[in-house]
Write a protein that binds this DNA or RNA. Sequence first.
DNA 1: CGTGGTAATGTTATGTTATATCATCTATTT
DNA 2: AAATAGATGATATAACATAACATTACCACG
Lengths: 173, 173
Amino acid sequence: MALQAKGQGRSQERFPEPGHDHGPCLAHCVARAEAAFEARGLSLTPLRRQVLLEIASTHAAIGAYEVLERLAGKHGRRLAPISVYRALDSLVDVGLVHRLESRNAFFACHRQHVSHDDQRAALVCKHCATVVEVPAGDVVAGLWKLAGKAGFLPGRIMIEVTGTCERCRGEAQ
Amino acid sequence: MALQAKGQGRSQERFPEPGHDHGPCLAHCVARAEAAFEARGLSLTPLRRQVLLEIASTHAAIGAYEVLERLAGKHGRRLAPISVYRALDSLVDVGLVHRLESRNAFFACHRQHVSHDDQRAALVCKHCATVVEVPAGDVVAGLWKLAGKAGFLPGRIMIEVTGTCERCRGEAQ
DNA sequence: CGTGGTAATGTTATGTTATATCATCTATTT
DNA sequence: AAATAGATGATATAACATAACATTACCACG
């Protein structure tokens, strides 16, 4: 929890500064990844680690083929799309990465969802693609209620808000 | 409003009976479409009407290529994908059809969103693909609040709840 | 040992969803 | 008639995603 104390606290619920020190964000992600895979009897293999590092290298959502390109740029070797998708799937399964449905893209989860109640809404800047997840427990509770009235049993709840972050709003003027 | 009085009222906020009389649903949609396009100085062309009819022929969400297939089956002629997408785009623009991001599919809006406040959440049955929109004003208000705290200015808010409808739950047992 | 199981990745091919670009036609406006 | 906007056609390609089968590595069990 030392990492959280050093600035990973509430800060994740606001849009990150472009020039912020991203090292801790990344380190935190990878540390969680080791544990998360281990907890399921799986492992954070080199491929998965590489994919995670690409995704987590930014607070923006990026596409699977973008990940593929970046990896191809770093190592000479070019992976098959399916390899990237398999790595992404495993990362999504263990909750380290989320899929942004409205963009067919992926972004790193910078704070573990600690319980079933700890649900999030994604705020997505349409200019810089930065994604911030905000706790949305009350909102989700409201949705369960609405669903109930319709005789509907919710499984997954997807909340994506596209708009403009503070920074991009400032720059537009 | 006669159509609404004849059963288009609250019923749309529950899952439709499979055997329900779909004629009014369809008629209502097309009637609204005429008006909606007209109001923008555009028109509900034959192509758009056909696409709308396919989408609105069911309460399920269907893909663009599925629309294409169905039209190809009815008329001998096979449209280019772009033609279907263009028609869909125009229908989405005027609000007669919504896009289901979590499935890359489209569904007809069976009740006009009357104001900016009249926002909806989509309940999507994962078994039968039926989509019901429920008013979600309070939930959306909550999201605006969360966004505000993050310095974020919302544009489009997407709420999609996948799960199981009453009917499919019954059948599973 | 070796055999069988699971996890992970490789290899090849294909399927699905969506858009770019330029051409054509029609109706309306000037 | 020329200019403009709306709509569609035609051709090609981009972007996103998975199917199916082969291979490798490791580990548990008799």
